[in-house]
Computed example of a mutant assay.
Amino acid sequence: MVILLKAIMISGRTLGQGASSEAKMSPEFFKAASFCALSELDYDALDVSEGGNVLVRTNFGEVVVSAKKDEGLPPGLIFIPMGPWANAVVGPETGGCGTPQFKGVEAEVERSAMRVMDVRELFADLKRAGGEGS
């Protein structure tokens, strides 16, 4: 049975993502930016296993990221660090400021057996799909 969680996605900078942002092809950046933080309640409701992945889908795209519990998040709110994985699911509209809306994106989340793509694979996939990440 597929459990689908409706959530609001936010994104932002993290210490790990910021510290490794100069080396976006590195394993450190991959680990720091390719995850989705969920409340403990939502994580458990999705029945994600330790080290498991989730598929995050919005009106703008979808991406597989690793799932992490975050006791600081309330149920219904997910967090993906700024980077290519968050970019895959936010809209291209910038409101004239040059930065997409990284807060308040409606999303659906489900447990996934698919693996998380690295940066090169993610960009190639977005290019094939005609996305903005090309």
Results as ranks from 00 to 15, higher is better:
residue 121 E to H: 11
residue 17 Q to T: 00
residue 4 L to N: 14
residue 114 M to P: 05
residue 121 E to N: 07
residue 69 K to W: 07
residue 63 V to A: 04
residue 105 V to M: 04
residue 79 F to D: 02
residue 110 E to I: 10
residue 108 E to M: 08
residue 21 S to D: 11
residue 92 P to T: 15
residue 106 E to Q: 07
residue 92 P to S: 14
residue 93 E to A: 07
residue 11 S to H: 01
residue 99 T to M: 09
residue 34 S to N: 12
residue 30 F to V: 00
residue 110 E to Y: 15
residue 41 L to Q: 15
residue 130 G to A: 11
residue 44 D to L: 10
residue 44 D to F: 05
residue 60 F to C: 06
residue 131 G to W: 12
residue 67 A to I: 04
residue 129 A to E: 09
residue 52 G to R: 12
residue 112 S to V: 09
residue 22 E to A: 14
residue 51 G to H: 05
residue 84 P to W: 01
residue 112 S to P: 07
residue 107 A to V: 15
residue 47 D to P: 01
residue 30 F to S: 03
residue 66 S to H: 12
residue 81 P to Y: 06
residue 49 S to N: 02
residue 26 S to T: 03
residue 23 A to Y: 13
residue 50 E to S: 13
residue 56 V to C: 14
residue 75 P to I: 06
residue 71 E to S: 14
residue 42 D to N: 12
residue 18 G to Y: 00
residue 31 K to H: 10
residue 16 G to L: 02
residue 107 A to F: 10
residue 109 V to Q: 08
residue 61 G to F: 14
residue 22 E to K: 15
residue 105 V to F: 01
residue 6 K to Q: 14
residue 114 M to V: 08
residue 122 L to F: 08
residue 87 N to S: 15
residue 121 E to G: 10
residue 15 L to F: 06
residue 82 M to P: 00
residue 55 L to V: 09
residue 32 A to C: 11
residue 114 M to N: 14
residue 17 Q to E: 03
residue 35 F to M: 04
residue 39 S to N: 11
residue 131 G to S: 14
residue 134 S to P: 03
residue 126 L to V: 05
residue 98 G to P: 06
residue 25 M to S: 07
residue 8 I to G: 02
residue 91 G to R: 02
residue 56 V to I: 13
residue 14 T to H: 09
residue 42 D to S: 12
residue 35 F to Q: 08
residue 88 A to V: 01
residue 117 M to S: 09
residue 91 G to P: 03
residue 29 F to I: 00
residue 80 I to W: 11
residue 130 G to S: 12
residue 84 P to E: 04
residue 103 K to P: 03
residue 134 S to A: 14
residue 79 F to S: 00
residue 34 S to T: 09
residue 86 A to D: 04
residue 125 D to W: 08
residue 28 E to Q: 15
residue 36 C to M: 14
residue 110 E to P: 02
residue 62 E to I: 02
residue 91 G to T: 01
residue 87 N to V: 09
residue 105 V to Y: 00
residue 61 G to P: 05
residue 46 L to G: 03
residue 35 F to N: 03
residue 96 G to V: 04
residue 15 L to D: 13
residue 124 A to V: 02
residue 128 R to L: 09
residue 121 E to V: 03
residue 83 G to F: 01
residue 35 F to V: 13
residue 115 R to M: 11
residue 76 G to K: 06
residue 85 W to A: 01
residue 113 A to Y: 05
residue 14 T to Y: 07
residue 102 F to W: 10
residue 124 A to L: 13
residue 47 D to G: 12
residue 92 P to N: 06
residue 127 K to I: 08
residue 34 S to K: 04
residue 121 E to W: 07
residue 120 R to N: 12
residue 49 S to P: 03
residue 124 A to S: 11
residue 64 V to R: 13
residue 104 G to L: 02
residue 15 L to N: 11
residue 132 E to D: 04
residue 112 S to K: 07
residue 76 G to R: 08
residue 72 G to E: 04
residue 89 V to R: 01
residue 54 V to E: 00
residue 43 Y to V: 04
residue 36 C to D: 04
residue 116 V to A: 12
residue 86 A to I: 00
residue 56 V to Y: 02
residue 37 A to R: 12
residue 129 A to D: 06
residue 37 A to S: 15
residue 10 I to A: 05
residue 118 D to P: 06
residue 53 N to L: 04
residue 108 E to K: 00
residue 12 G to D: 02
residue 66 S to V: 01
residue 93 E to S: 12
